[in-house]
């Protein structure tokens, strides 16, 4: 069969393709498109909660695989990171918690601790193995008489960040209040006095400089979730 290139059809298709690409840029910016994507994202939250196995542990690695100079990541530079002083730092507790007495750094450090060498996975795609040590959040929540049947745990941070997670993820054995990175007291830029280290969720679900922990039945907002990222963000 002789083959003749239908040039007109070719150029027409090409121009339609380029047109739809150009308008595709603006298409995403429509409120209705954003609202529809948000609805799918909320549905994905439910799927992920169902997929989450509370007993499945994140892979752990040999200590020598942990990166010593861990990547700094925030929307501000490391020199602008909050400098919290142990002398006047108090961890505030709120919501469905029996004993809301604030905690000092010394009291926090007296809690039982464990280490983990796990992979931190950023929503952008990069990942890095680090060694964190601290207290399982479950141990702390039990200690303060938190209502463990409540649906969520929320966090407020000294840098204006805020996050939250489902109770099942908060009670996961590898979800810790990390006081140390690579064996050293958590340096200021990484979130002193502690960050939540949760290897079953994306990096942005690991809030730093935590100043308030609250327990609630209303889904806590998240800093990046408010900027369009998926809320559950389990991995």
């Amino acid at each position: 069969m002789p083959i003749a290139l239908p040039r007109r059809a070719l150029s027409r298709t090409a121009s339609i393709a380029s047109l739809s690409l150009l308008t595709g840029c603006d298409f995403s910016d429509h409120g209705r498109v954003q609202a529809a994507l948000a609805r799918v994202s909320a549905w994905n939250d439910r799927v992920q909660a169902a997929l989450f196995n509370p007993h499945k542990l994140a892979p752990t690695f040999a200590a020598d695989r942990a990166v010593k100079d861990f990547r700094y990541n925030a929307w501000y530079g490391p020199d602008q990171a909050p400098a919290l002083d142990a002398a006047d730092y108090r961890l505030r507790l709120a919501g469905l918690i029996e004993n809301k007495q604030p905690w000092t750094v010394a009291q926090l450090h007296a809690l039982p601790q464990q280490s983990q060498v796990t992979r931190h996975v950023c929503v952008e795609g990069w990942s890095m193995i680090g060694e964190w040590s601290g207290t399982p959040l479950r141990v702390f929540l039990e200690r303060i008489g938190a209502d463990l049947t409540a649906r969520y745990v929320g966090f407020e941070c000294a840098d204006g960040y805020y996050e939250g997670m489902d109770m099942a993820s908060a009670l996961h054995p590898q979800t810790i209040m990390a006081f140390r990175l690579s064996g050293e007291i958590l340096p200021r830029k990484y979130g002193y006095p502690f960050k939540i280290r949760i290897p079953t969720k994306l990096g942005f679900k690991n809030p730093k400089f935590v100043t308030t922990i609250y327990v609630t039945n209303q889904q806590p907002r998240g800093f990046w979730t408010d900027r369009g990222y998926n809320w559950f963000s389990g991995i």
């Binding site: 995403s28 954003q34 994507l37 948000a38 799918v40 994202s41 994905n44 929503v123 990046w224 900027r227 369009g228 990222y229 998926n230």
Partner: peptide, 8 residues
Amino acid sequence: ATAIAWHF
């Protein structure tokens, strides 16, 4: 964020 929402 929007690209990820499209993707998922």
